[in-house]
Simulated scan of single mutants.
Amino acid sequence: MRDVADLHLRAMTDPAAAGERFLATAGHSLRVVEIARILHARLGDRAKKVPTREIPLALARVLSVVNPQLRALRPQLGRDFDATSAKAERLLGWRARPIEDTVADTAESLLAHHLTHGK
């Protein structure tokens, strides 16, 4: 949220942003297993229940036939959703925080507000 709020503020106050659209992104898309690895590295024992293994893509596609949750994700399986914030960087001088910091800070907030499953 900090990055998005910062970008919104810059876009509202900088004349160069008039009529423009900007993406608030920190780079390449992350797979769930990459997020899990960040959580383990940053949170240690507090992330011990976060799984770090991933099922093979072919198995996920097969399981999506019978699993409603996987079925909803089927169009996204194996795809990257990369975007760029180059325009915001160029016109507004905006820089996203490192994705590892964002993931860890989000997890810390969820833990602090008791919004996770288990302890």
Results as ranks from 00 to 15, higher is better:
3 D>T: 02
5 A>R: 09
5 A>H: 13
5 A>K: 04
7 L>M: 05
8 H>E: 06
10 R>M: 13
11 A>S: 15
11 A>Y: 04
11 A>F: 09
11 A>P: 05
12 M>Y: 12
12 M>P: 00
14 D>L: 08
16 A>E: 02
19 G>T: 07
23 L>E: 09
24 A>Q: 01
25 T>L: 10
25 T>H: 09
29 S>K: 01
29 S>P: 00
30 L>A: 03
33 V>L: 10
33 V>A: 14
34 E>H: 11
35 I>E: 01
38 I>R: 03
39 L>H: 07
39 L>V: 08
40 H>G: 10
44 G>E: 06
45 D>P: 15
45 D>E: 14
45 D>G: 14
47 A>G: 02
47 A>S: 06
49 K>N: 12
49 K>E: 14
50 V>T: 14
50 V>W: 02
51 P>Y: 03
53 R>N: 01
54 E>P: 02
54 E>Q: 13
54 E>H: 06
55 I>Q: 10
57 L>R: 08
57 L>K: 09
58 A>V: 14
59 L>W: 14
59 L>S: 09
63 L>S: 11
63 L>E: 08
71 R>L: 06
71 R>E: 08
71 R>C: 07
72 A>P: 00
74 R>C: 05
74 R>I: 05
74 R>Q: 10
75 P>T: 04
76 Q>R: 04
76 Q>S: 09
79 R>W: 05
82 D>A: 11
82 D>G: 11
82 D>K: 01
82 D>W: 05
85 S>R: 02
87 K>F: 11
89 E>S: 14
91 L>P: 00
92 L>T: 00
93 G>N: 10
94 W>N: 00
94 W>R: 00
95 R>C: 04
97 R>W: 13
97 R>F: 09
98 P>S: 12
100 E>Y: 04
101 D>T: 07
104 A>S: 15
104 A>V: 12
105 D>H: 03
105 D>W: 00
106 T>L: 14
106 T>K: 02
108 E>D: 13
108 E>T: 07
109 S>F: 15
109 S>C: 13
111 L>V: 14
112 A>C: 06
115 L>I: 10
116 T>R: 12
117 H>I: 15
118 G>C: 03
119 K>S: 13
